[in-house]
Every structure is written in structure tokens, then in C-alpha cells.
Design a protein around this nucleic acid. Sequence first.
DNA 1: GAACTTAGAGTACGAGCGTTCGCCAAATCA
DNA 2: TGATTTGGCGAACGCTCGTACTCTAAGTTC
Lengths: 200, 200
Amino acid sequence: MSPRRSAADALLTRGRILSRAAEIASEEGLDGITIGRLAEELEMSKSGVHKHFGTKETLQIDTLDKAFVDFWHRVVEPALPEPPGLRRLRVVCANSVNYLAEPLLPGGCLMTAALSEYDGRPGAVRDAVAEVWSRWQGQLRADLVAAVQGGELAGGFDVDQALFEILAAGLALNAAMQLQHDQAAVGRARRAIERALDQS
Amino acid sequence: MSPRRSAADALLTRGRILSRAAEIASEEGLDGITIGRLAEELEMSKSGVHKHFGTKETLQIDTLDKAFVDFWHRVVEPALPEPPGLRRLRVVCANSVNYLAEPLLPGGCLMTAALSEYDGRPGAVRDAVAEVWSRWQGQLRADLVAAVQGGELAGGFDVDQALFEILAAGLALNAAMQLQHDQAAVGRARRAIERALDQS
DNA sequence: GAACTTAGAGTACGAGCGTTCGCCAAATCA
DNA sequence: TGATTTGGCGAACGCTCGTACTCTAAGTTC
């Protein structure tokens, strides 16, 4: 530990904390994050960790936000060169399947884990989870709507049904990977998404 | 509290503990179960609660098992009069959708919650979660296989694909109900399951 | 009815939790 | 260069956790 403490270093430290916190949370949940444990693993003091966030709840929310930003960078942004519509949607879905098959975090997708963990616990963390999921669903939905309006999908196409099935495939893929390490689920998720887009 | 303590009363007490534990776990996870909290809410001593299980881990596993038995009673057993095959499968699926739409537990399906919570944490609890999911998948799979063998489904029917999509619909329904209280998801889950069985 | 078993109470324990406070040294700003 | 801000440390706090004891009164078994 070089004992320099500039403002830039502070941001860097904050990033280190959040990175480790996201790893822990992906395996043990947002409640598995512990200030004492982070301090020990990062070789700093509890109060040092604590000071960056002021509250454990803030640390949890910031951890979730960081994981979501990383997810967005990898899944959504590479697809933005495509115009809104079916092609972009397919790229986003393919990226998300790849993300779930080979996640950045050791315990899989943090958004998915946080969903189950906090869906029944009112509070700021739950609100943050809902916000993150709303953004993700909104992204998928926008491309579905664009595809319908662009005539890429049949006239009576049910956007919400397709959205439901796409999200379902992601949840099931995450579960199969994390609980059973079932690589075959990757192909099934891809096929399920393709079927979701073909409502014949 | 009448201070009788027969062997029958002990079983009854154990049942009360597990019922409350299942409620808590459905909302806050298996880790939300706390011996002190159970003791307080059930108006007994911590050591009294503890004695029934010997270990918190055992309490968690027994809670999961109890929830699974209740699930089985409501979802699978009513369908057993039907012979194995497509009709029985449809009854089981309908029951499971109803279960997720109106769960016995306040926080929704405990098996689903436990899946996300423990899929990244090796140990006896994780093993119990895997066992429970394996049984559920096995039940669905058996009827799918019977349906194929009985000629109720097309020749090239992909059983594992259908199983994946059925499980996916359940996970997505649970998420939609718990996070967004989205009643419309019930119909989408039913349709998704019907589509899973129609692989034209 | 005596011997034994057991449900549960009561108390205590060590450990870990989030948070607070005072402090220091370096970075920044005037 | 002097004053101020701030990243981070160290120690302590009150609390809750799971678990381990002892002890009792009632049930069960012979």
C-alpha cells in the first residue's frame, strides 16, 4: 500500500471496493456483502471502507449499479450501432445469452440474484433492483416495438408475450448455469428466444 | 401457551416453527431465518427453538423440505389420478402456475427464492436445493417422455427444450409477480407453456 | 411407582455486524 | 506558505447471531 491519498486515488479505492463487493454479491447475495470482510480482503480498515458509502445500504445499491453498468457495456452498447428493430434486438439477446453463459462475475448475473433476494423486502435496495430491471426490460421492449412498427414482425405480434418469454429464457439459463452448470442450456436459451420471436 | 410437553406436542411445536420459518424465508430468504427471531415471534426461548434442529443449517433444510412438500401436495398430487402423459402434464403445469400466482407463502415460491440464494454457495443447503429442483424437473420430464412415447407429441419432439421453456415460464412468472405484482404475467406464463408444448 | 427420557427455559459465550468518533498526514487551495 | 479539506486508520459502541451449558417438570417406560 503506497500511502498516497489523492482525490484520484479515492476514486480508485472506491472502484476496488465495488469490484470486490460485486464479486461477493454475485455469489452470496447483496446481503453477503460485509464491510468487515471487504476491509480484510482489501487490506484496509472497516472505517476506511465505510467512509466511501456512509451506509451499508448505499454500498449495496452502488454495487448493484456498478454491476448493471458493466452488464450494459457488454450487452447493450455493442448493439447500438444497429438501428432500433429486430436486428439490434437479436444482437442484444445474443450478447445477453453470452453474458449469462460466461458472466463477468464469479456467481453469475448480479441483477438476477438481486431480483430474487430483494423482491419481497421493501426499501431503497428493492427500489434500485426494480429500476435496473425496468431499464433492461425497457431496452428490449423498445426494439420489439420498433420491429413491429418497421414491419419486421407480423401484424398481430404480441410484444409483451415475446418480452416475457425472452426474459424467461434468461432467468432459466442463469439458473441452469449456476445450479447445475448445464452448458446445454445455452443452446436451449438461444432457441427459446428465437421461438419467442416467431409467434406463428 | 399451555405448558404440556408430550411427544405429540413436540411435533406440533416443530411444525409451528417450520411454518413460520417458511414464511420468513419466502420473503427474506433462507438466511433471513433467525433462531432468535423465531423464538420471539413464537413466544418461546431461543434454546427451545434450537433444540428441535440442533443446527441452523438443519433448520434451513427442514424449512425448504417442508415448503417443497406443501408445493407437491398442491401442484403434483392432484394430478396423479391422470395417467402419465400430456393430460397429467397440463394439470401439473396449470397447478404450478396457480401456485405461483397465489402462493401459499407471503413472499412467493420458496424453492425459487432458495435457488438464486444458494446456487453459488457450496454446502448442505445448496445440495438440498438442488435435490428439490431435481425432483420437480424429474416429475415434469417424466410426463413429457410419457407423452412422446404415447404419441401425444410429435416424433422429433425435443423434451429438454420443452422442459427448459416450462421452467423458464415459471421463473419469469414468479419474478413478475414478486417484483412488479404484474397479474398479466399469469396469462403470459400459461401461453408460454402452451407454446412450449407446440414445437411445430 | 421408580427409573428414564425429553421439551423447553434460562443464562452465558465469543464472534461478527454496522456505525460513530477522534485522529493524522497528505493533497489541495488561498 | 499557511489554512483547509479529505482519505483512511484505530478503537470502541451496542446489538444480534448461533451454539453450549445446566436445570426443570412433565411424559413415557418398565
